[in-house]
Design a protein around this nucleic acid. Structure first.
Length: 881
RNA sequence: AGGCUCGUAGCUCAGGGGGAGAGCACUACCUUGACACGGUAGGGGUCAGCGGUUCAAAUCCGCUCGAGCCUACCA
């Protein structure tokens, strides 16, 4: 359909089909540079960086949720006149992506070691290009207004340079060190992982009690362990220095079963809990972080018996080559045979699993790189304490402090191929050189024989630089100057520690400034009660939802589901209801456009005489606009979308549209009123489109074009703030009273089970002249909407049913049918009234209430009691039939 | 083991010291010229339980029960 520019005469298709225009509008916006910041540097700006999705495959509905919220903010701020920049990009996601490629290779029967590091990395790059395209097209379909000309990838040359510079800087500051420690090791992934990448889960295991012989102590020493296979690496037994139960073991030497090694009995008050088990602990420094610390304190040997592949090492003697869990069974069997197994008890305990592949994590002694984190954490804690960075919802502040104040050093080296190679070079003499560019010679001894560390960095080491590396840091670029620090970061709370906390630390450390001022943490998306997660594979593609319901409906569903809680439930019913809402808007627009066949009229409003309904809907529009702005300012997307839903559907469509249909029909011959109503209608539609645009950009832009004749300009049109001059505190209650009267009439028919078209006679007996005047003004509407046979002023006629509505005494009757009053219904209402009247009366007899409650509250209770009593009196008066 | 969050209508969830709310679902009626992805009206809740503070508690405090999440080196 061709568009007609310059008038509001264009028609909308009868049926609403989002697929018809969504892609077209995205293309238009992009071609016209709407996603790029416009305006001179220094003018008010709004900057966000996307949380870069992993290039592991496709976007799932959780990502789409976060991006929708960001786009709502971006579009809102853009319409408010800010210079908006939202930077897109993707994350190489080291371990996650490497796993995906390994799986792909496995399908082809290829082992990555046969392929070799370089060829493997080539494969990943090829994969990455496809995945990036997929993700980008998904984000486009969602309508996100990202500036694609600035798209970044964490492995881009300049971003890699930033990573290297960060590493080198921290190293020279003494904040990165290399050392041999027990780390979390995933035998399947073949790499160390950080504490955060270990998922703890309770599992049912066994606690084995094993007797070790001790020279001079006939009973020996019984130790308890959940991991008998590690005993092969025992190098001591430990007791508490003040435990009388184990005092006889002091200074003795034990013999390690199976192996026969002599184990000193050491005393360590930190390791040994006197309350637990036998009070004797086997010490395995190479396979337990606590034992490692004890080993350091007591100078114990570290014997590695489980290798990086999870199999027993040569140190394990006859068990060498066995898988760690097989070895456990064999050792238990052997101990049993040797009569050393004193007992086995079921034992439920927490066990670490690999976040990526769920393999049981092995504490493994190896040489790794670490970030000394405490000096970085301090300023990051202070920034939040000082309010320079704010979390929304606020409750996350506590969680942040909790973690930051108990933070541990961060293991950043990964034994992977996909990622940023660690810029450390070791010479033949073992000296380490760390530099921004590859060194030719060792900086200590000048040796030219250098070998770069084969490991790569934890993905999050590069992600933490994202808010400034995307702008060219460490170079002092214009972009960095202009767009950093950013304003708002929107992300899921699940990466508060992984990413947000680390960005705050890195941002402050490297740039001296907080990376953003507000962190909006949203909940995690569940679909039909099922938990979403990348590794579980039950992800749902947002494109499927877009194809079925339209991007606008998906977005509106996200917005209205975005409560401040920790989970967001996405279900089909909700999507379907959002689509209905889109359809409702479409049809309201169709109707409005059909009334505006001679061009726009909103500008004629100033100086015109407005009817009560006109004043009412403009007042509601103004209030709604103010509310939406306020809610968005508080990141309450749910409240904002609800306000719009309520206004558009229940006030504009159900209310105003129905009220003005008689005027618009022209049958009453009041041309001036008709023109005014058209103007009001146009104003309401235009502002509704603008208000809804951040939530439903495609549909609103489509209608906007038909309404204004301006193509693709809604995205940069001003966002309605809610004109206070339109607030009308007289029109609102007047129209609402009238609506209540109409409802009462319909209700009356319903009680009597007569047709909605059955004429009813309504008598009203206003208490004041002002009220009478108000009702007379609204009389045509009351007659029309209530389908009244007659509207009479004065006391109730014989046979009528009496009531009080909004303080107005009314009487209802059916002229045609002698339908008797619905006694049951009335009796039920009366008993409800009696209950409430009793409560209120008791309140007013309570001296303490009268004395202590604020006068307005007391007054309110009085008024309400009065109204209820009026109603009771009216209803209780038997109609004189 | 600690910490956090949550228990409100059949479902999903807002609200949060003074008259229990929304959307969906449900019931009845309505082919009214924007819309049946519609309209009109209606039913439905001792706001998890117990105790406390208060003139007043769904709302604040404590405890109990239940659910979820996070952190943690208990052999």
């Amino acid at each position: 359909m061709d568009t007609v520019a310059g008038g509001a005469s264009a028609k909308l298709e009868k049926t609403f089909d989002p697929a018809h225009f969504e892609e077209r509008w995205y293309r238009t916006w992009e071609e016209e540079g709407r996603f790029q910041p416009v305006g001179p540097p220094g003018s008010p700006r709004f900057v966000m960086v996307i949380p870069p999705p992993n290039v592991t495959g496709r976007l799932h509905i959780g990502h789409a949720f976060g991006r929708t919220l960001e786009d709502i903010l971006a579009r809102w701020k853009r319409m408010l006149g800010y210079r908006v920049l939202w930077v897109p990009g993707t994350d190489h996601a080291g371990i996650a992506t490497q796993m995906v490629i390994e799986r792909e290779l496995a399908k082809e029967g290829i082992d990555k070691f046969d392929l070799g590091r370089e060829k493997f990395i080539e494969r990943v790059w090829a994969w990455k290009r496809d995945a990036k395209d997929t993700i980008q097209s998904q984000i486009r379909r969602l309508g996100c207004s990202l500036d694609w000309s600035r798209e970044r990838f964490t492995l881009d040359p300049d971003l890699s340079e930033a990573v290297r510079h960060a590493f080198v800087t921290l190293y020279h500051e003494g904040l990165i060190y290399r050392g041999r420690y027990v780390v979390n090791w995933c035998p399947r992934c073949g790499t160390a992982v950080s504490d955060l990448e270990v998922v703890h889960r309770d599992v049912d295991g066994q606690l084995y009690r094993i007797r070790y012989d001790v020279s001079g102590v006939s009973s020996g020493a019984v130790v308890a362990t959940t991991r008998p296979e590690t005993m092969l690496g025992d190098t001591a037994l430990a007791i508490h220095p003040e435990d009388p139960r184990t005092a006889k073991l002091r200074g003795k030497t034990a013999a390690l079963p199976i192996v026969g090694r002599a184990l000193p009995v050491i005393e360590d008050p930190i390791l040994v809990d006197r309350e637990f088990g036998t009070g004797i602990v086997k010490v395995t420094p190479a396979h337990d972080a606590n034992d490692f610390a004890v080993g350091k304190r007591h100078g114990l040997t570290e014997i590695v018996v489980i290798g990086p592949d999870g199999k027993m090492t040569a140190e394990a003697g006859e068990y060498a080559g066995l898988d760690r869990f097989e070895a456990r069974q064999e050792i238990v069997k052997r101990l049993q045979a040797e009569n050393r197994l004193v007992g086995v008890d079921p034992h439920r305990h927490s066990l670490g699993h690999c976040q990526r592949c769920d393999t049981v994590i092995e504490p493994y002694l190896s040489t790794q790189w670490f970030v000394k984190i405490a000096p970085l954490a301090q300023p990051a804690i202070r920034a939040v304490e000082a309010g320079e960075i704010r979390f929304v919802p606020e409750l996350w502040t506590k969680t942040y402090f909790e973690w930051m104040r108990n933070i541990h050093d961060w293991c950043i080296s990964r034994q992977l191929w996909w990622g940023h190679r660690i810029p450390a070079f070791t010479c033949v003499n073992g000296h380490v050189t760390v530099a921004d560019s590859d060194p030719d010679a060792c900086e200590t001894c000048g040796s030219g024989e250098l070998r770069q560390d084969p490991d790569v960095l934890d993905t999050w080491f590069s992600s933490q630089l994202w808010p400034f590396s995307v702008f060219g840091w460490p170079k002092q670029t214009e972009d960095l100057e202009d767009f950093y620090p950013t304003d708002v970061l929107v992300t899921g709370y699940d990466i508060l520690f992984f990413w947000v906390a680390r960005m705050i630390m890195a941002g402050i450390h490297f740039t001296g400034r907080r990376p953003f001022s507000t962190v909006n943490l949203h909940g995690l998306v569940r679909l039909a009660g099922e938990k979403m997660s990348k590794t579980r594979g039950n992800v749902v593609d947002p494109l499927v939802a877009i194809e079925e319901f339209g991007a606008d409906a998906l977005r509106f569903t996200y917005a209205s589901s975005a409560t401040s809680g920790t989970t967001v439930t996405l279900d089909r019913e909700r999507l379907s209801s959002s689509r209905s809402f889109a359809t409702k808007l479409w049809n309201a627009a169709r109707f409005t456009l059909s009334q505006l066949d001679a061009g726009p009229r909103a500008e004629i409003l100033p100086g015109r005489e407005l009817s009560l309904p006109d004043r009412w809907i403009l007042s509601r529009l103004s209030a709604t606009a103010a509310d939406v702005n306020r809610w968005l300012g508080e990141f309450r997307y749910d409240e904002a979308s609800q306000a719009l839903y309520g206004f558009l559907w229940h006030e504009l469509c159900d209310g105003y549209l129905e009220m003005v249909k008689p005027v618009l029909s022209g049958r009453d011959g009041d041309e001036a009123a008709r023109e005014t109503a058209r103007g009001v209608l146009e104003r309401c539609l235009a502002d509704s489109l603008a208000l809804l645009h951040p939530f439903m950009p495609f549909l609103t832009e489509e209608i906007w074009e038909k309404l204004t004749g301006r193509t693709g300009t809604l995205i940069v049109s001003p966002y309605p703030a809610g004109d206070p001059a339109w607030r009308d505190l007289a029109a609102e209650p007047a129209v609402e009273r009238m609506r209540a009267l109409v409802t009462r009439v319909r209700n009356f028919r319903g009680d009597r089970r007569v047709s909605p078209t059955e004429p009813v006679i309504l008598s009203v007996d206003p208490a004041s002249a002002a009220e009478a005047e108000e009702i007379r003004t609204l009389e045509p509407l009351l007659r029309h909407l209530g389908r009244l046979a007659d509207l009479r002023f004065g006391p109730a006629a014989d046979g009528a049913e009496r009531d009080v509505v909004s303080g107005i005494a009314v009487a209802l009757s059916l002229p045609s049918l002698a339908a008797g009053a619905n006694r049951e219904q009335i009796a039920r209402t009366l008993s409800q009234l009696d209950g409430e009247i009793g409560d209120l009366a008791a309140k007013l007899q309570n001296a303490a209430f009268l004395e202590k409650a604020p006068p307005p509250v007391v007054e309110k209770v009085r008024r309400r009691l009065f109204e209820l009593e009026q109603r009771r009196a009216a209803l209780a008066t038997p109609a004189s039939e």
